[in-house]
Amino acid sequence: MNLLFDAIAWILDPANWSGAGSIPQRLWEHVSITAVVLVIASAIALPTGALIGHTGRGREPAVRVSGGLRALPTLGVLTLFGIWLGIGLTAPVIALVILAVPPLLAGAYAGFESVDRRTIDAARAVGMRESQIVGKVELPLGLPIVVGGIRSATLQIIATATLAAYIADEGFGRFIFQGLRTRDYAEMLGGSILVIILALVIDGLFAIMQRLVVPAGVRASRTRELRSRPTRSRAVVGQPITEGNQE
């Protein structure tokens, strides 16, 4: 337990709260690199995922690519980009984007796919354009799952940004590697605690957001769902009704 007290003392030490490499500076770095990576990765993955979920085309390759990317060891990707691009922020940013794309992509297509095909069919039957179906039906109904994907991607970025301090001078991870080199366990543990708090806070914010984006009508049905599950057929999920049904 002494170790834990040392770490807390290290966190509370005013000397660590100002100047170069202080806790606020590292926090800012950690949060801003996470935000930048999230924005870039979202710009790539979310529209792609929405397109796949809406059309049902390219689902198999997307599953395979995002599954395959998940098997990529993060440290391997980081170090590889590290020796290619040298010390600086470019390498970790690129590596982090690559690693954040799979959960975002999976969340986006799963969200769009989760919408009952009959609801979409009905929207088309009353005369909605494809763009209106995407914007007014699929997006609001699939949003909770999409946000779920953003949530896990963000946690992944925060975790990997910690590790990225191995190849770049950024974020809370620096405390861990600094402490490791100087055999200062209090600093290592202190840095770890800060990262854990950051991750849990962000996760909590996303949990709240995920609840808020559930459309009211869907929330209303939740209580009923316990008794009577919707009879959505998994068999038709992912197969768009482009040609009409065949009875």
Partner: peptide
């Protein structure tokens, strides 16, 4: 249509 096809949200 069957099952009304209403927009749940």
């Amino acid at each position: 249509m069957q099952n009304s096809g209403l927009l749940p949200h």
